[in-house]
């Protein structure tokens, strides 16, 4: 049997951490783009669009992320498409992230006074222009802190991709544990690495929130 030193374990975990970071970034960026599109639909005042987004958000916030991963993994296969864990994880995490971001951002948009909508309406701006030039610039200031805060959930969410076989930090931990039989050490290190990824984001979110409260 292979012998693993502490440094072997750590370096293997760190290599896998790269994939945790990549998956987090993709989920966050793609989720943000989809979330922004959904946000435009959610606050459009067009009833069918609003109902659709509400249902979408209800589903992705009301079911376990793990189930969503399974559904994408096995669901895409039904179309006869070869599914990789990577593809299923990216899709599931993107949709899941978008649902949460849409809801967070909707709260921010709702906190903008109604008069801003009316004034920009009366100046002949279209809905898209109102959002682009009047509402979003104001809402985004409030949105920064909770959005950064949610990025922590995204990083942690990527850990579930291990269950459908995507090799990132958690999966690497499981594999190393099976090879070394040193679960206490391996999972301590895995936890520590996640902490190093997430804590700065949590801290940043808190600081941003504090700054905003002082500014008011």
């Amino acid at each position: 049997m292979l012998q693993f030193s502490f440094w072997d374990i750590l370096s293997n975990l760190l290599i896998a951490t790269q994939w945790t970071i990549v998956l987090s970034l993709i989920a966050f960026v793609c989720g943000g783009v989809v979330g922004l599109i959904l946000l435009f639909m959610r606050v459009s005042g067009v009833t069918p669009l609003e109902w659709f987004t509400k249902g979408y958000i209800e589903f992705f916030q009301g079911t376990p992320l793990l189930m969503q991963l399974f559904l994408f993994f096995f669901g895409i296969a039904l179309f006869g498409v070869e599914v990789s864990p990577w593809m299923a994880a990216t899709l599931a995490l993107t949709f899941w992230t978008s649902a949460f971001l849409t809801e967070i951002w909707r709260g921010c948009v709702d906190s903008i006074p109604k008069g801003q909508w009316e004034a920009s309406s009366s100046l002949a701006l279209t809905y898209i222009e109102q959002m682009r030039y009047v509402i979003l610039p104001q809402a985004s200031r409030i949105a920064v802190a909770p959005t950064v805060g949610f990025s922590v959930q995204v990083v942690k969410g990527t850990a579930l991709a291990s269950i459908i076989g995507f090799v990132e930090l958690t999966k690497a931990g499981t594999m190393l544990n099976n090879a070394t039989f040193r679960p206490f050490l391996v999972y301590s290190l895995v936890a520590l690495i996640y902490f190093c990824l997430c804590y700065p984001l949590s801290w940043g979110a808190k600081k941003l929130e504090g700054r905003l409260n002082v500014a008011r």
Binding site: K156, A159, F184, Y187, S188, V190, C198, Y199, S202
Partner: peptide, 23 residues
């Protein structure tokens, strides 16, 4: 609080179920 909030639940679970027996 910070340790738990900044690590995934699945890792906490594995630590408790697989890691603690070693201790």
């Amino acid at each position: 609080v910070e340790l738990i909030r900044n690590t995934p639940f699945i890792v906490q679970l594995f630590f408790i179920f697989f890691g603690l027996p070693a201790a």
